[in-house]
Design a protein around this nucleic acid. Sequence first.
DNA 1: TGATTAGTTGAAACCTAGTATCATTTAAAA
DNA 2: TTTTAAATGATACTAGGTTTCAACTAATCA
Lengths: 143, 143
Amino acid sequence: MVVEIDGMQESNLLTTLEDIGLRKTSARVAVTAQIENTSDSFTAEQLCRDLPYVGRATVYRTIRHLVDAGALCKLPILDGAPMYSIARVEHHHHTICTKCGSVGEFRHTTVERVMRSLEKEIDGRITGHRMEIFIICSKCLAE
Amino acid sequence: MVVEIDGMQESNLLTTLEDIGLRKTSARVAVTAQIENTSDSFTAEQLCRDLPYVGRATVYRTIRHLVDAGALCKLPILDGAPMYSIARVEHHHHTICTKCGSVGEFRHTTVERVMRSLEKEIDGRITGHRMEIFIICSKCLAE
DNA sequence: TGATTAGTTGAAACCTAGTATCATTTAAAA
DNA sequence: TTTTAAATGATACTAGGTTTCAACTAATCA
Ligand SMILES: [Mn+2]
Ligand SMILES: [Mn+2]
Ligand SMILES: [Zn+2]
Ligand SMILES: [Zn+2]
């Protein structure tokens, strides 16, 4: 069963940073607010353009903190900069529209069950997995 | 059922290039031979280091031709350069050892079946998918 | 409250991975 | 052979990101 995960839940990235023991600074307020107001996924460079008064280094550092803390997903894009999106649930996978780049999150119980069954069959110890489904999203199909 | 795919089958990357209509040049002979003699996966920079007499531009161009032709897999590594490996079967997935970086290829019938079943459930039209399983390989576990 | 201090910032320099340019060379057809 | 379009590779450039470090500031403390 596919469970699509969407929209604006409480996330407060700033609190995540404070919980790690980092200071509440104006740069961090600006970066986290911008991310939370961007309902879609984004790249680091987009964030830099949206926040011209925050230094590049700080934008990148803040993103890294949030990824390390598990509050942001970093997903590799084969040609180009990785995309980031707020991680609303612990473990999930992504749909990526190859036309417009929009990213969706979902969980799939059968996939997870299959993964667990693989542990007996794969040579070595499984420590994790990643899955992306490439789509043309309904919005792009409608055009 | 997991089908692990391994070892040295006939692949002749050079022939792939000629089949696309590209000329047989000494640079292309060198690059394809080096790839075929590297039984493991590799990065573009590794290949450049192994072939100091072939220009960087040519190494990158040759890799791109081979990827476009489907003879090489390009797989994204979250921090760093993508890895390449010879594509021995049409569609497959990868295991990546997070310790030594070695890449394995496998097919999994159940995963593919699940993918097809997802088409009804995901919003949009599915055009493809990607899956990587992160492992500590048996070689690294043995150390 | 103001003094202290360790954490934070951001301009600039740097780095890695990869692409574009273009004069020279070469494969392959004629 | 001669011809010529394709290929090469040195060099310059770009994108994405990190390091450095002097200046700044948030949080703690007297
Ligand atoms: Mn999963
Ligand atoms: Mn598959
Ligand atoms: Zn789309
Ligand atoms: Zn390993």
